[in-house]
Amino acid sequence: MKLITAIIRETKLDEVREALIENEITRITVIRVSGHGQQTREHIYRGKRIVPGLIPKVKLEIAVNDDFVDITVNTIINSARTNENGEVGDGKIFITPMEECIRIRTGERGGKAI
């Protein structure tokens, strides 16, 4: 079991969600976050050049069984990328091993609880 954490652009949330649902990955957690990576894209707002400090992003957390890791990751990459070549600021995906997963309602553990 793996925990996939993806940080994506706010504006891409719907595209990514639709793509995930299409591939039958329907259990996700979404969190609004702020942060910065490489992105230093300048905006012009009220006539001023602005380089945002902390940039609002959306974080997705998806717990998956091992067979689903590739499809989930590929789906996110394809839907969260800006245009075809992508742009700085499109985000990152982290995959971490997950020790246990428990469904609270039944107390089931492991892969079938996901």
Binding site: E10, T11, K12, D14, E15, E18, R32, V33, S34, H43, Y45, P52, G53, L54, I55, P56
Partner: peptide, 23 residues
């Protein structure tokens, strides 16, 4: 694409509820 992004970002370059995030 613009519909999924939302009208705010697509047509106005702003966020109505941006203040909910640390920035």
């Amino acid at each position: 694409k613009n519909e999924m992004q939302g009208l705010d970002a697509s047509y106005h370059g702003e966020h109505g509820y941006g203040m909910l995030n640390a920035s």
